[in-house]
Each structure stands twice: as C-alpha cells, then as structure tokens.
C-alpha cells in the first residue's frame, strides 16, 4: 500500500531470489513442453508457438529479476528475510495463525464438508467453527449468526436465484 517506495527494491530482494528461481524454472519447463507440441501445418500456426514465446520471455524476465537480486546480495538478504519471517511468526504469531486457520478452514469446507454434507449444514459447520475460533463469542450468538447466514445463503441461491448449490444437496 502506501509504503515509501525507496526501500522497496531492498525489501523485495529476498523474495525476488525465490521468485526469480522458481519462475525461471517454470518458464523453461513451459518452453520445453511447447517444443514437443505438434505442428500440423508449420511452426507459424502451431499450438506451441505462443507458449514457447511466453516461456522464453518468462525465463528471460525471471533471470533479470534473479540477477538483480543476487547482485544486490539477495542471498544474504534471503537469509535475513527467513530470520525475519521466523521473528514475524513469533511476534505476529496471532495474525499468521489466524490467516493459516482461515485458509485451512476454507480447504476443509471445500474438500471435506461440502462433498459429504448438505450445503446448509456444511456451511453452518464451517462458519460456526471458524467464528468460534476467531471471534470467541458465546456459542449461542455464534450459532445464531452462522445458522442465519447459512439459511439465508441457501434460500437466496436455491429459491431466489434458482441455481444449484455446491455440496451433497440441500433441504431448503
């Protein structure tokens, strides 16, 4: 956001090292794959043409990123950054943990709850658990909010918008 831009390059040196390496690898892989694609009527209409160009271009740009990072001591910076992250995790442990919990919550909701439960139940379970852990209010309040939202969303989509909901079904 509104960060002083002068030290941005400094700040991003560490991430640049990782990004540059992995993106260059991705670019190379894409370009290599593109070469193996068929050429039914010459190279100029081949399916692999643009992927090849994009892969090469990505590799070149990532290389620039990588070189810039290494030149300015990206390696040392990266080690510092890792230390920093470790520190962050302890200092801002609460935030990191909440973010991770949020992410895991969505994963559980999408991959475990929805395929097995009715939409409104899965949603209720997800919302109630997440709010319980993050919000820490009395269970009744949470149950009311989570239940209300689950029912409202189900009705909105199945009755008003007349579309299918994800999940194993719905009884509303």
């Amino acid at each position: 956001m509104v960060t002083p831009t002068v030290d941005r390059r400094e700040r991003e040196r560490g991430p640049d090292l990782v990004a540059g390496t992995s993106l260059a690898a991705l670019g190379l892989y894409v370009a290599a794959q593109a070469v193996t694609m068929p050429r039914p009527a010459g190279w100029h209409s081949a399916p692999g043409l643009l992927p090849f160009l994009l892969g090469s271009w990505l590799t070149a740009m990532s290389a620039v990123l990588l070189v810039g990072s290494v030149k300015r001591g990206g390696g040392a910076q990266l080690r510092r950054a890792v230390r920093q992250i470790r520190q962050d995790v302890t200092v801002r442990a609460d935030r990191v943990w909440r973010m991770a919990f949020m992410l895991a919550g969505v994963a559980v909701y999408v991959y475990l709850l929805l395929p097995r439960l009715y939409f409104e139940i899965a949603t209720f379970v997800y919302l109630a658990t997440t709010m319980r852990v993050l919000w820490r209010r009395e269970p009744l309040k949470i149950a009311l909010v989570a239940g209300g939202v689950a029912v409202a969303l189900t009705l909105l989509f199945s009755r008003f918008l007349r579309t299918l909901l994800p999940g194993a079904g719905s009884w509303l």
Partner: peptide, 25 residues
C-alpha cells in the same frame, strides 16, 4: 472475524455457480 468467513463462503458460491463445477472452486 464474522464478515470474512461469510465472504469466503460467497467466494466458493461465486466460483461454483458459473459452471456448477467444483473444479472451478
């Protein structure tokens, strides 16, 4: 803490509703 989990559900619904596909989710 209340708002964001609800928005997450809406994200799932928004992604699913387009082609009714869990792959999109």
């Amino acid at each position: 803490e209340v708002l964001m989990p609800i928005i997450a559900v809406v994200c799932v619904l928004g992604a699913f509703g387009l082609n009714l596909s869990m792959f999109d989710v």
